[in-house]
Design a protein around this nucleic acid. Sequence first.
DNA 1: CGGTACGTTGAGTCATATCAACCATAGTGG
DNA 2: CCACTATGGTTGATATGACTCAACGTACCG
Lengths: 238, 238
Amino acid sequence: MRMKQQDIHIPLCNTCAFETGSIFKHLTREETDLLNYEKDFRQYKRGDVLYHEGTRINGFYCINKGIIKVYKTGFDGKEQIIRFAKSGDIIAYRSVLSNEVACTSAKVIEECQVCFIPSEILSSFIKTNPGFALELMKLACHELGEANSFITDIAQKTVRERLAEILLLLANDFGLDDQNYLGISLTREELANIVGTATESVIRLLSEFKSDMLVELNGRKIKLVNPKGLRKISNVFN
Amino acid sequence: MRMKQQDIHIPLCNTCAFETGSIFKHLTREETDLLNYEKDFRQYKRGDVLYHEGTRINGFYCINKGIIKVYKTGFDGKEQIIRFAKSGDIIAYRSVLSNEVACTSAKVIEECQVCFIPSEILSSFIKTNPGFALELMKLACHELGEANSFITDIAQKTVRERLAEILLLLANDFGLDDQNYLGISLTREELANIVGTATESVIRLLSEFKSDMLVELNGRKIKLVNPKGLRKISNVFN
DNA sequence: CGGTACGTTGAGTCATATCAACCATAGTGG
DNA sequence: CCACTATGGTTGATATGACTCAACGTACCG
């Protein structure tokens, strides 16, 4: 069922950038106006793919609402989730900047509203607005730092430790509601594809965590009963 | 034994940038002159540490000669090698740009000559030279892409596959001499710390590879006898 | 000559993957 | 409305890759 045009509320970049805390908050008024004019507003539902690994994309996406998983497909077709993007995040900027084909795919986890922004806009802002360039670089460098941590974790920690850590990271990124339920719902398989393990292992460990009174499980909703306990298991210092 | 001053040949940034293909080749003549004036030339020998994870650093390094390993220290003190840097590469720029403490440490593998460049220089170049900013961003984004691949590999592949892949990657980065010996010499432990496994596992697998006529081993020197075979084992398509 | 770092090998253990069966749920089409 | 199918979740049994621990060899170095 197609949504009627008037039902859609297209956010204005200048207000949106500020509300979501996106990187565009560093642009001038003229620049956000240009952005607003050039961008393409799009809606996606669960399961939709924004772009595929290996394809060339001529722009990037700024998430206004919803949740997206960014993943790579491994040798045997198994997907490895690299990160999630939510309100205020931008994705696919890497391919645009390095001028390479996409090294990941992006699929919708929770119904999304996003703006698609042509590559040229990004390049021109970098050239004309050094503050913005610096901010974008900060973003890339921050992601790089996170990737490095993840490499170390995945290489050195057990599946059990990693699962506990991921639950805490998700709580950090997506928050907990008033009953301590995680602000994101994932299938067991998706959880496995973050942690880098088999679906069955996630299921077993989750029910162990449940027996140990660390979490409660209601289908895909996970309640963190004892975050401190999880932290202890995960062996994180920071 | 301290080297005499006149024995040291301090490279000029403008020629060096060009020779090593470093990112500074995109700077103007005036900018390289400034760089040349502000930089601090330093020499290190095997085992020296350039900077430690968790410390704040007020500049970054451009490698003129030698090899450096960049690594993170995991929970139990085991190091995970993130990448290597060689002639023309820059390291520690991530911390400078994201304005965070270093998320890695850097240690010399092969005697090094490097230039240390104060943070402010980098920031000012980004602001005044958009082409340079773009190039630096490309670099960060490229590294990010590599990190993502590495995450997927380490999460999904067996140790055997990863070891084969790493040997090929090293061959790619450091070349093979006329007898097909790898252009970098690492201890078994260091190899293990790239692959993300135990030293003993690397030893066992290497001697398996040897039995299978894939490599020859002379102490730390590794000869790739059958790169195609290694490629097959590693399951890489690209 | 003793010390330290690195390399190698064997044996035993354990965490995790794999394989298989089964259940629950929801959507689909005749 | 019901059979059919697909998808996701769970559990058990089994296999095995990889880690750990321990002993020992080797080489270099002061």
